[in-house]
Design a protein around this nucleic acid. Structure first.
Lengths: 216, 216
DNA sequence: CAGTGTGAAGATGTTCACAGCG
DNA sequence: CGCTGTGAACATCTTCACACTG
């Protein structure tokens, strides 16, 4: 949604890749990881589209848009393709994340084990509640939000997660941006705004439920 | 993504409303609630598009597709429009939800206060861990997953949230569907599948982060 | 000859321009 | 006169058909 506004700053390589394709890249990657685990060496667009319930033509078009890593008559070399995708998504390196808001959702994210095999790791955590400050959660010390901009800058953090109540979400986003954060994942309800080069992803539980409710 | 596959079963009214429009409905609704709180009686497409950072033409097209609730030369009556949207989204009634998996994310959702002013409420919770069974969390007693299908059916639950590890996600989805659930929100990583009339919404933290990482 | 890569056709969604109405 | 509602132009994404190649 929001994201479209900010896709203007691409370099030539990324310029012509539709955001829908980017959306599917993580799916392809996960699919390939499964195939690797199964010991497969080659994958066809058909195999992948079966697993992901989409059209094989779309898989081929997507992959060809990224540079065409397949061999005609054979398919795609799974390991190689996976590392190409990781490189395109820039998940071939670790990204440290600043988490703001250690309430219900925030602390669930802090203790979440699912980051382990991924490119992501929460290394800073902030909250407003002085009771929480100094506490350790999963190896991370909770700091006061007033230190946010400063600490994010010190640690050169590029990604932030906002899990604070609606009222302070925008303020937190501004501080993250001030600290040099380039991508923000927002769990808070309100539609927040970020300046041009920063990318925003909104995840709203209520919104998803409302959509499901429509389709009932 | 997945959802497209299952939009085939619409009645005439819903048939021609693009899913992108449905996607924006919750945003319009939230925007209207803010305007109501501000004491506004009328809203123009311009006002709404400003708040939501989208094109006023799009707002008008969306709303006209739903039936055209505006007055020419004036705008839309906020209260009336809001209740129309609530009715279309079917959030003018309470929906009880079955939560499966009371781990990090699951228990965060159970204690989440954000449901309070919404149409949603978690009234059943299930886990595999026998240690957790019988415990109360936010007024909900945690039951064993083996009872899932039965209990969901008893309570005529129509919505389910899956917050279990990847390996059991599909099994849980099947049981929810067997119990008569019509919409599923899945927090687990794998792309699960549901039969035709059931709607699926995937929320994947890792996927969102991977997309952000691309845009960095 | 099996399966990729891709130009062209088709579908879907967004923006525009302006008619129409309170 | 202002703002909605909407057909038409435009942009974007997906599907198709088939040429091409290892």
């Amino acid at each position: 949604m929001q994201q479209e506004k900010f896709t203007g700053g691409f370099n030539k390589t990324k310029r012509k890749i539709p955001k829908e394709t980017i959306d599917r890249l993580p799916l392809y990657l996960r699919c390939l990881q499964i195939l690797i685990d199964e010991g497969k060496l080659k994958a066809t667009s058909q195999m992948m589209s079966d697993k992901l319930h989409l059209n094989p033509h779309l898989v081929r078009k997507d992959l060809s848009r990224l540079g065409g890593f397949g061999t005609q008559g054979v398919g795609y070399p799974v390991k190689n393709l996976a590392s190409q995708l990781r490189s395109i998504l820039q998940v071939d390196q670790k990204w440290e994340i600043a988490l703001v808001g250690v309430g219900n959702i925030g602390s669930a994210l802090l203790t979440y084990q699912g980051f382990d095999r991924t490119a992501f790791n929460i290394s800073l955590a902030f909250d407003e509640d002085t009771e929480l400050i100094g506490e350790m959660a999963n190896g991370v010390r909770i700091e006061h939000v007033s230190k946010l901009t400063e600490r994010v800058q010190e640690e050169s953090i590029k990604l932030g997660i906002i899990a604070v109540p609606a009222t302070s979400a925008q303020k937190v986003a501004d501080r993250l941006v001030d600290g040099g954060v380039k991508g923000i994942l927002n769990f808070a309800l309100p539609q927040i705004t970020v300046p041009e080069p920063v990318t925003l992803a909104q995840v709203s539980l209520i919104k998803e439920l409302e959509k499901l409710s429509f389709y009932l």
